[in-house]
Computed example of a mutant assay.
Amino acid sequence: MKRWLPSPLVSGILLLLWLLLQQSMDPATLLLGTILAIGVPLLTRPFFHPIGFPRVAKPILLLRLLSMAGMEIVRSCINVSRIILFARPAGLNSQFIRIPLDLKNPYGLALLSCLINMTPGTVWVEILPEKYELVLHVFDLHDEQWWIDTIKAHYEKPLIDIFK
Rank of each mutant, 00 (worst) to 15 (best):
64 R>S: 04
65 L>G: 01
66 L>K: 13
66 L>V: 10
67 S>T: 05
67 S>W: 06
67 S>C: 02
68 M>G: 01
68 M>K: 03
68 M>Q: 01
68 M>D: 01
68 M>C: 01
69 A>C: 05
69 A>D: 00
69 A>N: 04
69 A>R: 02
69 A>Q: 05
71 M>P: 00
71 M>N: 06
71 M>T: 04
71 M>H: 03
71 M>L: 03
72 E>V: 05
72 E>K: 07
73 I>R: 05
73 I>F: 03
74 V>K: 04
74 V>L: 05
74 V>M: 05
76 S>P: 01
76 S>W: 06
76 S>I: 03
77 C>P: 00
77 C>T: 06
77 C>H: 09
79 N>I: 02
79 N>V: 02
80 V>E: 06
80 V>Y: 07
81 S>F: 04
82 R>D: 13
82 R>C: 14
85 L>Y: 09
85 L>G: 09
86 F>N: 10
86 F>A: 10
87 A>E: 04
88 R>L: 02
88 R>H: 04
89 P>G: 03
90 A>K: 14
90 A>Y: 07
92 L>I: 09
92 L>S: 03
94 S>W: 09
94 S>F: 05
96 F>Q: 13
96 F>A: 12
98 R>G: 04
98 R>D: 01
99 I>G: 04
99 I>V: 07
99 I>F: 03
101 L>W: 12
101 L>F: 11
102 D>A: 14
102 D>C: 10
102 D>V: 13
102 D>L: 14
102 D>I: 14
103 L>M: 11
104 K>A: 09
104 K>R: 15
104 K>M: 09
105 N>R: 14
106 P>G: 08
106 P>I: 07
107 Y>E: 14
107 Y>Q: 14
107 Y>P: 06
109 L>T: 11
112 L>S: 15
112 L>H: 13
113 S>M: 15
115 L>S: 02
115 L>A: 08
115 L>F: 10
116 I>R: 11
117 N>A: 14
117 N>G: 13
118 M>N: 13
119 T>E: 11
119 T>A: 08
119 T>H: 13
120 P>I: 09
120 P>Q: 12
121 G>D: 00
122 T>E: 00
123 V>Y: 06
124 W>L: 15
124 W>I: 15
124 W>Y: 15
124 W>Q: 14
126 E>G: 04
126 E>I: 07
127 I>T: 09
127 I>K: 14
129 P>G: 14
129 P>M: 15
129 P>R: 13
130 E>D: 12
130 E>F: 11
131 K>H: 08
131 K>Y: 04
132 Y>G: 00
133 E>N: 13
133 E>C: 09
133 E>R: 14
136 L>A: 05
136 L>I: 06
136 L>P: 02
137 H>Y: 14
138 V>Y: 08
139 F>H: 02
139 F>Q: 01
139 F>A: 01
139 F>L: 06
139 F>P: 00
140 D>F: 06
140 D>S: 12
141 L>G: 02
141 L>D: 00
141 L>Y: 01
142 H>P: 03
143 D>I: 05
143 D>G: 08
143 D>H: 11
143 D>S: 09
144 E>G: 11
144 E>L: 12
144 E>P: 05
144 E>M: 10
146 W>A: 15
147 W>V: 06
147 W>D: 03
148 I>H: 11
148 I>P: 00
151 I>E: 00
151 I>P: 00
151 I>N: 00
152 K>Y: 05
152 K>C: 01
154 H>E: 10
154 H>Y: 07
154 H>M: 07
155 Y>M: 10
155 Y>C: 06
